[in-house]
Design a protein around this nucleic acid. Structure first.
Lengths: 263, 263
DNA sequence: CAGTGGTCTAGACCACTCC
DNA sequence: GAGTGGTCTAGACCACTGG
């Protein structure tokens, strides 16, 4: 009947209301739409519906979960708001993907002071297999010394080197990742991760600081040592709030700036 | 009857649906709940309900606007999401205010690298009446030379000068603002603006860059000239997306960082 | 206890998209 | 036209808050 959900609709009329009922000392309850949301998220995570694909319609999901369309709708509303899915009127609801202009700029806040953002051209400096340093391991909730993939690259805009990035990825999740794959791949790196390695970045936290370019950074960015740079340390998370990427970026902010909205 | 709204409910059954009907070449339509949202926003802006106060209940608003409670609910949902209003179950819906811990950190993203954020102590350096420079006027959609209030202050954490700010405010809106008022006032500056001058900051945009401390900044922050600083240029907006503050901050990021969420 | 927001349902009509 | 998400209603029960 009521599937696995803690819904208690039986015979009688409409009106349900989740929450505790008379029976059972069950400790925690969550609203029905939250449970639906969790179920849908599971299907997304498991790859039952892949990025870019259409998910079942609201009516179909309502039937599957034996709840009203309104409840499914509220669940999907929240998923859409968290950018896990995208609603398109008349078409349906799609799994979000990093292969869209739309999603690109959520994770790249560096904008030119004037004019529209150009696409960067990427120069891969290095791709190595390394052991996780203590700090990286801590941030990714792994053990120090676990196998990792380390990537260093420089991004240029209009031929001007502007971003120097160093990434750490869990070796287990990104086994076949090589410099060649990175170089030949067209499009955003998170798109590559998503389609080739089945790991989709959902959200990230960043810590920003102003620092001076050391000799190494100065050389790669072709600037004077001591030039002020914007340091951005990012931790990215996939489904289930699992951290899967540590990234340390240095942005040259002479003709660009980091754009942020406080709302 | 149907008030001022473009709702077309008459006699018949339930089910309404906004949008164009047979009559009239009316060009633009917006959903009912958007119109309700706009009306509520007007009441907030006009000061009919002041920050911290309780607004009428959903049922009361539904009656007033002659729509269903669900429609009012959707309008308020969006207002809550935009932080214009705060819902409290069992109590009611309140006008958001800057006099809450909750609201403080939305507009101050600088966090200590370790430990909990302390409250800053503020040292007002200067409060002047000036004419708007071209750049400030442009950002605030005013005319170059319009009367402005200029504020310069330094904020310290644990006795360490960390933030140097320069603010520009429209003189018309902040007439009675003096150094004394700023100094004697306890609590967040946006709280002062809200209660004393009736201008509530709703959202802001920030542009971040890494720069070097010039002589002036170095002196006030008690650091060496050339120290890298995080430059944050903010424009704040009040109701109706009207820009009412330009702020240029310099953050010392040796023991603090600018925290950001990408989601 | 009454009043508030929070959840859930069922059913209606709408605008949009694609065939 | 059929199918999708988007809006709207009316009514039910719930959890939480306060007197």
């Amino acid at each position: 009947m009521s599937s696995v959900l803690s819904n208690l609709n039986n015979g009688s009329a409409p009106g349900a209301g989740a929450g505790a009922s008379a029976s059972g000392p069950s400790p925690t309850f969550s609203p029905l739409y939250q449970q639906i949301k969790a179920l849908i998220t599971q299907s997304l995570q498991s790859g039952e519906w892949k990025p870019g694909e259409l998910i079942p319609s609201e009516v179909e999901l309502a039937a599957r979960f034996k709840v009203s369309q309104g409840t499914v709708r509220k669940a999907i509303d929240e998923l859409a708001q968290e950018n896990l899915v995208v609603r398109r009127q008349g078409k349906g609801t799609f799994v979000a993907t990093h292969h869209e202009v739309r999603a690109q700029f959520r994770f790249l806040r560096l904008m030119p002071d004037e004019g529209e953002p150009h696409s960067a051209d990427n120069r891969v400096i290095d791709v190595k297999r390394l052991r996780a340093p203590a700090e990286v391991a801590r941030l990714l909730e792994m053990k120090s010394g676990d196998p990792m993939i380390f990537i260093k690259r420089v991004q240029s805009f209009d031929g001007v080197p502007t971003i120097l990035e160093e990434l750490w990825l869990p070796g287990v999740l990104f086994k076949g990742l090589t410099a060649e794959r990175l170089i030949e791949y067209k499009g955003p790196m998170y798109g590559l991760f998503e389609t080739e390695f089945g790991t989709r970045m959902i959200r990230a936290t960043e810590q920003l600081r102003a620092v001076c370019a050391d000799e190494h950074a100065a050389q790669l960015l072709e600037i004077a040592q001591g030039t002020p740079l914007l340091s951005v340390e990012r931790v990215s998370f996939t489904y289930g709030d699992k951290p899967v990427e540590v990234r340390r970026c240095l942005y040259l902010t002479t003709t660009h700036h980091y754009q942020n909205e406080l709302s």
